[in-house]
Design a protein around this nucleic acid. Structure first.
Lengths: 141, 141
DNA sequence: CTGGATCCGCGATGATACTG
DNA sequence: CAGTATCATCGCGGATCCAG
């Protein structure tokens, strides 16, 4: 079987899948795939990165206002995680009232590229997914 | 909704981000990004898709054995979700003992491409992330 | 062999109140 | 403005038992 990949920049995909799979499941050692999944498994992280990808620098309040539905606490936690992982920088201006700006690092922007690619996939294929769900419901009743 | 098609790589990223951002946060309507995030936010889904991407067709037991750490229940739930969303097919062979085979659909394989790309990003950049974490720890003590 | 059904603990998350 | 601290909840996911 041959896997057809949309991104021509990567060759030998089948082997890569195998490699990553081996890394994931054959040992109990550190697994980069699991790690990155853990990072983006939190939807707030994804929304935050995409948000910063749009606007370069943003303040805490701007992020809170822009990311629909996020609580103050989760925004704080999310930003701390992303900063810890080197995906964004946190700049504090020592003034009253406080001002803090967040900005993607180069690393963060490279991940942004992946997430945009993923969101494009979502936009292109969501109709198929929705139709599959309808068929599934019809089939099981 | 307009989406820029083609190799996403890193060109034109800013504009695409803006489009998707508008879709995501400016309205309360259906959001494909949130939807796809919900799908891959579950690490078992990702592992399952990658697993199937490696081996074409797999039986329940083979998946269970291959995906390290997954429980029977979560594998069942995960497979049901993926089938419902049209990402894989479930083929039952009416025999005793039962035999069920799972296989990615074309849609599933196209998502596999995205996930492989993401895992490649993870493999290439995990060292930077790990170093950032160490620095973060050192900085905060 | 391939699940379905049930119970349940725990971590993630939201809400709220408070602070420099 | 930009958080911190605390509490309550709620759903994910593991364990277990059962069935076709």
């Amino acid at each position: 079987m041959k896997v057809t990949i949309g991104n021509p920049a990567h060759k030998g995909t089948q082997e890569n899948v195998k490699d990553h799979f081996s890394d994931n499941h054959s040992t109990n050692h550190y697994c980069p795939v699991t790690d990155v999944i853990d990072r983006i498994s939190d939807k707030w992280s994804v929304h935050t990165i995409i948000m910063l990808g749009k606007s370069d620098k943003l303040r805490f309040g701007e992020l809170k206002k822009g990311i629909h539905g996020i609580s103050q606490r989760m925004l704080t936690v999310t930003l701390k995680h992303l900063e810890r992982d080197g995906l964004l920088t946190r700049t504090v201006y020592p003034q009253i009232p406080p001002k803090v700006e967040y900005q993607l690092t180069d690393l963060g922007r490279s991940l942004l590229g992946q997430l945009v690619s993923l969101s494009e996939w979502a936009a292109e294929n969501m109709n198929q997914v929705l139709r599959a769900r309808e068929d599934y419901i019809l089939k099981n009743e």
